[in-house]
Amino acid sequence: MKVFVVVILAIATVSAGVLPQVDTPVHPRDLVDAPSIEGRITNGNKAASNQFPYQVGLAFKNSAGSWWCGGSIIANTWVLTAAHCTNGASSVTIYYGSTLRTSAKLKKKVSKSKFVQHASYKAATLQNDISLIKTPSVKFTAAINKITLPSIASSNSSFAGQTAIASGWGTTSDYDSSVTSYLQYAELQVISNAVCQQTYGSSIVTSGVICVASTNKRSTCQGDSGGPLALNGKLIGVTSFVSALGCEKNKPAGFTRVTSHLDWIKTKSAVFY
C-alpha cells in the first residue's frame, strides 16, 4: 500500500497527567529514508475474494509523485479516507473490488475538486485526520459494496476490549521492500484511550482517536493509511498512525474515531448513520 502516516510518540504535558514521550509525530512522506509509497499490514492474513467489498485502494498523485492509501465505501458516491492521504494530492484513482491489488473490478479517477478534507485537520497532532471523496456512482455487487456507519447511539462507546478488523495492501514485515499483491487483514483488540496515551500522550490520543493493541508484531502500517477499522460490520475507525519506531514494535496503532465525526460526515455528504 502506499503512503501513510505514521507517527509518533508525542510529547504530552505533565499537567495532563501523561509522561513526556521521546518521539515526535511525523508522516512517512516526510521521512527522507521512508519508501515513497510502500505500506503494509504486518503479519496479517490473506483476505478471501469479496471478503471486504467496502475496501478500496486509492492511488494518489501530484506533480511531485504518487502514493497509495486505503479507503472505505460509505455510499455509492462517497469514499471515506484519511486527511493525510488527500492532503497535497491533485487526483486519485480509486480501485474498487480488488483482492489482487492491481486487478480491480472497476477504476474511477477523480480530481482534487472532489476531495472534502476536514478543515481542522492538523498534521502536527494528527487531529481530524479524515477526508471524504465524492465519486462517480458505482453499482453495488458482491465485490463492491458499502460499509455501514455506526449509530449515533454508539457515540459514547469506547469499544475497548472488542476485536475489530483492519484491512489493506502491503508488505508483511518492517523489513520487506516490496508490497504484497493481495489484500491483507488483521484482527486487533481495541484498547482504551487512557492506555494508548501511555505511549503517545494526550495531545495525540484525544477523544477523536481510537487505538488498538499490537501484539505478535501484528499491526497496520504505511500504505494502510485511510483504510477501515471495522467492528461487527460497521466502520469505527480510519487508519491514521503507528509508532515511528516501526510497525512490528508491538506499539498501539491509532485510527480516527468515526463516531466523533458522524455529524461532519452527514453534513458534507448527506450520508446518514
Rank of each mutant, 00 (worst) to 15 (best):
A123F: 10
I165N: 05
S158I: 03
S154D: 14
S120N: 11
Q162V: 03
S158W: 04
P150L: 07
T163A: 11
S167A: 14
K114I: 00
N128D: 04
F115I: 06
V116Q: 01
A124G: 13
S137E: 06
S154K: 09
A123M: 12
K122N: 15
L149R: 05
S157A: 14
K109P: 04
L126K: 08
A166S: 10
W169T: 01
S157Q: 13
A160G: 02
G161I: 04
K112P: 10
I130P: 04
K114S: 14
S151Q: 12
I152V: 15
P136I: 07
T163N: 12
I147D: 02
I165K: 06
S120W: 09
V110I: 13
G161L: 09
L126W: 10
A124D: 15
A153N: 04
F159E: 05
I133K: 08
A123N: 14
N128Q: 07
P136W: 04
S131M: 02
I133N: 08
S113D: 12
I147Q: 03
T135Y: 02
I133V: 15
I130E: 00
P136S: 03
A160H: 03
S154P: 05
K109V: 13
S120F: 10
Q162M: 09
P136L: 02
S137N: 01
K109C: 10
A123G: 14
P136T: 07
A164G: 06
K139G: 11
T135Q: 03
V138L: 07
L132H: 03
V116C: 03
A143R: 01
S154Y: 03
F115N: 11
I130L: 07
K122P: 02
S131A: 14
A153T: 14
G170T: 02
S154V: 02
S158A: 00
K146L: 12
I147W: 04
K134F: 06
I133G: 11
S111N: 12
A153H: 13
T163M: 07
A153P: 00
F115M: 08
K122D: 15
T148E: 13
A160Y: 02
T135K: 06
K122M: 11
D129P: 05
W169M: 06
T135C: 01
T148M: 10
S167F: 03
F159T: 10
